[in-house]
Simulated assay, not measured.
Amino acid sequence: MSDGNSDVPQHIVSVALGPGLPALVPAEEYEACPVTQTLQMLGDKWTLLVMMMLAERPHRYNELRRRVEGISQRMLTRILRVLEDEGIVTRTVFPTVPPGVEYALSDRGRELLVPLAGLADWVVRGTAA
């Protein structure tokens, strides 16, 4: 929120954010912000569901596709590639014929589950009120 994007005085914004939170990102840097990019990645229809499946245990591609009802092959492939590129998922290829491929959450992906679980708890508490 830059001064031109909000009528909220800066001192109120600072109080609302409190200590320990990152500074506001200028509007021209918003799309390049890693927080924005991460929230966009996690905010699609399928990514969190795929991560929850992988949180249980590693899965092979076709097993994931069967468990995530309604996801297309193209979308699952795209999600797994993005998660792998971000270091959230690992991809292991086994030397079989045909090659077997298994996906699992990386340590970074398991770390991400902690704040996601906190967010889920917050949502559930809010809807129960």
Rank of each mutant, 00 (worst) to 15 (best):
T47C: 03
T96P: 02
C33D: 15
P26R: 05
R110S: 05
M75L: 11
D7K: 12
G126W: 02
S14N: 15
E31D: 08
A23E: 14
E69V: 08
T36M: 08
V123I: 14
V35S: 05
M1Y: 07
D85R: 10
Q73G: 13
L112G: 08
E84Q: 15
V82S: 09
P22G: 00
Q37M: 12
A128W: 01
M51D: 02
P98V: 04
D44I: 03
D7C: 11
Q40Y: 07
D121L: 06
P58S: 08
R78F: 12
N5M: 13
I88L: 14
R78W: 04
L80A: 06
A32F: 11
E31A: 09
L113A: 04
E102F: 00
A16R: 15
V35I: 09
L48S: 00
N62G: 09
P58D: 04
G100W: 11
R108Q: 09
V114R: 01
R57S: 15
A16M: 15
A120C: 08
G18D: 06
P19Q: 12
L39W: 03
L119K: 10
D7W: 10
Y61C: 05
D107K: 15
P95C: 07
L54Y: 03
A117K: 01
R60A: 14
Y61D: 04
L48E: 02
V50C: 01
V13S: 07
L39V: 13
L54K: 00
T36Y: 10
V97E: 12
E86C: 11
L113S: 00
R91W: 01
G118S: 13
A27W: 10
E28N: 13
M75S: 15
V82G: 01
I88E: 02
T47H: 01
P9K: 07
H59N: 13
A104D: 11
H59R: 10
G20W: 03
E31I: 06
G126P: 11
S72F: 01
P95F: 11
G20L: 05
Q37H: 07
V124P: 04
S6Y: 09
I12G: 01
E86M: 05
D85K: 13
W46P: 00
Y61W: 13
E29G: 00
E63Y: 09
V15G: 02
E28K: 14
E56D: 15
H11P: 04
T96M: 04
E84H: 15
Q73Y: 10
A117V: 00
E86V: 06
L49A: 10
P99E: 03
Y61Q: 09
D107H: 14
P26E: 09
R91S: 08
A55C: 10
M51H: 06
T47G: 02
L119G: 09
V15A: 14
Q37T: 08
V13T: 02
L21I: 03
V68N: 04
F94W: 13
V68A: 03
V123A: 07
D107W: 12
G43C: 05
V35W: 07
T127G: 06
V124T: 01
I12D: 12
L105E: 03
T77I: 10
L39Y: 09
P19M: 08
L119H: 11
R110F: 03
T90E: 15
L112Y: 04
T77D: 14
L112H: 05
A32G: 13
N62I: 02
G100S: 14
P34R: 02
L17T: 10
V124H: 02
R67N: 12
S72E: 03
